[in-house]
Amino acid sequence: MTDTFYSKLAKVRHYIHEHPEISEQEYEATKYIKNYLSELEIKPLDYPLETGVIAEIGSGLPIIALRADIDALPIVERTNLDYASSNGAMHACGHDFHQTSLLGAAEILKEREAELNGTVRLIFQPAEENFQGGYKVIEAGGLENVSAIIGYHNNPHLKPGQIGLRSGAIMAGVEQFKVIVNGVSAHAARPDLGVDTVLVITTIINNLQNIVSRTVSPFESAVLSVTHIDVGTTWNVLPANGYFEGTIRSFDPEVRLSVIERFEKVVKAVSQQFDARVEINWGNAPNVTFNDRDLTPIIFENSKKFAEVIETLPSTGGEDFAAYQEKIPGVFAFVGSNGEENAPDWHHDDFIVRDESLPVAVNYFVESAFALLNHFKKE
């Protein structure tokens, strides 16, 4: 496509960036996508989704899905860009870039519709940041008759023009935990008359830090981080209750289960030691983003036509694209979006995506769709 096309797409991204909406609140984004597709004579399908859009180009089988997430984060933007958000939310993870690239791909695929050996399903997914959107799309029937799905995340540590790919795990499985501890309140001068919730929580946290360092093989990897503690309200009272929360990240299902099992053992053992009562709550978070071992090499080689393709290391970030991969084969990539030294990472309030990254992102969608349609048509 021409420079004029990508200049237009850059303006589209700037508009989307300036009007972010957080997870499950993407109402204006949904209207914008539907209007954009309608102008391309692409009709959205009637799926029961409150936000987000699913549409199709082409006809017949096979069906290949292309997915982009559209939600933003509750972060106040500090980029000083001309098109910076001022509504208290921010596309601090680049979902404006993802959404724009799929809109651009839709335009190209519509122009080349006669060349399609099947159907391309466009999934503009809501609510990735709270890990619910992928499950909502699946529940609504968005994967019906789909042979495979393609997705990506921008990567500010890769340069525009680069794509990072690997077979197997490319993003971590995520566990979100909250542990509620109930002790017995007492005067700080008479701790023997209570059950010290502060001591229980701090002892549990200290013991949890030994799980990864002493029970996970050095040839495997996992992360266990406690990120929030809430206990007590004043200096001279032992609080009756409190809680802490955080996350576990891993790349192997067996490691994941082992760490979870040991986590629960530590929490229960310490609580019994001090006669406290505990409750462990696990959030609804995604499994490992695991690239199909048969399809990834196809996408890897095919992407060399328009990008510098590198075999990337996996990221400890999580992605609800994994929800789709639990149902059907999928390939997820990293698309270079900045590449400057010390470029701000995802979820920073000064996170910036460079517009010159758009051509590779658009072509990744378009060319992957053609490659997989042809692949499945031959089977």
Rank of each mutant, 00 (worst) to 15 (best):
T2W: 00
L9M: 12
L9T: 07
A10M: 09
K11M: 08
Y27D: 03
E28W: 02
I42D: 05
P48W: 02
E50V: 13
T51K: 12
A55N: 06
I57T: 06
R78W: 00
L81R: 06
N87A: 10
N87K: 06
H98N: 12
A105H: 05
E107C: 05
R112C: 01
T119P: 05
T119W: 03
R121Y: 09
A127V: 06
E129F: 08
E129P: 04
V137H: 12
A140K: 10
L143A: 10
N154F: 01
H157Q: 15
Q162E: 15
Q162C: 02
R166A: 06
I170D: 11
M171A: 14
M171K: 11
Q176G: 14
V181L: 02
G183M: 02
L193V: 00
T197I: 03
T203W: 01
I204C: 10
I211L: 11
F219H: 14
T233N: 14
V237D: 10
V237K: 15
P239H: 09
Y243F: 15
E245S: 15
D252F: 03
S258K: 15
A269D: 13
V270G: 01
S271I: 01
Q272M: 14
N281E: 10
N291F: 02
N302K: 12
N302H: 08
N302I: 00
K304V: 03
F306P: 08
P314T: 07
T316P: 13
P329R: 10
G330E: 05
G339Q: 07
G339T: 01
N342V: 00
D345G: 14
D349R: 08
P359T: 07
V360T: 13
V366N: 10
F370M: 01
H375P: 09
H375F: 14
